[in-house]
Design a protein around this nucleic acid. Sequence first.
DNA 1: CGACAGATTGAGAACCGTCAACTAATGTGG
DNA 2: CCACATTAGTTGACGGTTCTCAATCTGTCG
Lengths: 214, 214
Amino acid sequence: MMEFRAGEVRINGGETLFHEGDKVDFFYTAKVGQGARVIHLPNGGRQLVNFIFPGDTIGLQAALAKEASSSVVAASDMLLCKFHKGNLPKLFRQSARRAYSLVWIAAVEEHFLGETIATLGQRDAMQRMAWALCRISMRLSAVGLSSDGASPFPFKQRDLADALGLSLVHTNKTLARLRPFVRWEKGVLTILDPRALSEIAMLDYDAQPERPLL
Amino acid sequence: MMEFRAGEVRINGGETLFHEGDKVDFFYTAKVGQGARVIHLPNGGRQLVNFIFPGDTIGLQAALAKEASSSVVAASDMLLCKFHKGNLPKLFRQSARRAYSLVWIAAVEEHFLGETIATLGQRDAMQRMAWALCRISMRLSAVGLSSDGASPFPFKQRDLADALGLSLVHTNKTLARLRPFVRWEKGVLTILDPRALSEIAMLDYDAQPERPLL
DNA sequence: CGACAGATTGAGAACCGTCAACTAATGTGG
DNA sequence: CCACATTAGTTGACGGTTCTCAATCTGTCG
């Protein structure tokens, strides 16, 4: 993919890469740092659609559409690879393999979004929280950012609240109730009892994820 | 795409095309009829992830993965085009254009799932219902199934409840409160006052959708 | 007619949101 | 160095939305 690269981008925690409604001519992959894809509602509501971790593809959807339907914000300082949207057709012509892998990426993304929809629709606050923390921890350890069940997670409670569709207050109280099984302090997420968490989240503890690299 | 077709499939309303966990070797496009993609939870919960209308692509994600992460059920009798998963690599090699359009389809799908997540996370029952009915009506009229604001919609209240993450009872009561603006009787959905509905749903009435055909 | 699926309605309880107050940590300016 | 402001997290009280349970009603089909 190197020959299609349009360079690197750095953004600081709190900054946004692009906004909803923007015309976006690039897409990205995350190399370092964490962020989130966010949708804003007319009434001021804010939904965090997914977290962005190293290795993730960012903004493919935004680049293909006329305008972005979601914003991307950095939770920590991030380093990104930048690609020209205009190079996509050429890429598709030159390498069927890579084109295939883009579809693969999109399919995996779709899988995760579906699981999120099931969670927001069917699980209560406790289950949502346990589910999210499990998933986050699994993703982070899959990219090698986790040691001893402790992973960097530079978000605020407000972010998690907006991801789970809960109020900030209730998010806080739910976290408190899960404290026997999880700690989250100063940007570090520590899973103390993964089995108990999986249980609460109604997740199969030994289900291996399917998220291959590009 | 004709040369990759593996034939047509018919299924009856209520039947399921494939189940979660199945190994799926085909993907499909819907020609006639309506259905839904569904995720089942360990506790018996059921989340309807998206509705399937004529023209929609079905099971691309399931075909690419080792096993399907969602089921597909028909709400009415359906006619589907069937494609061999195994033909995908050949398709990618032979036609960059078509490969590109698959990514496009996936991106559009991702867009819709993101909007659904925002709805489940941020909107209350009334807003969800209005949102769903608006969207459904828009999709159906975009494929020419709608006349005079009336469209065929062969689902049950239970399906809509599971799509919106609401209980059946509350779904019913919410529908009752929206009755001045929408009717849904005997499988026909009629939007009486689209502007009022959009208002309730916090949707921009004149936002043109972006869902081109293959 | 009885059986059944789907829709409808009411009553009570549980969950979650809002409001408000308070703590702790950090930074800034005088 | 201290006063003050700001941000993030925490906790309690109260009220509203939504869920569950249960009963009733309707139309269809045998």
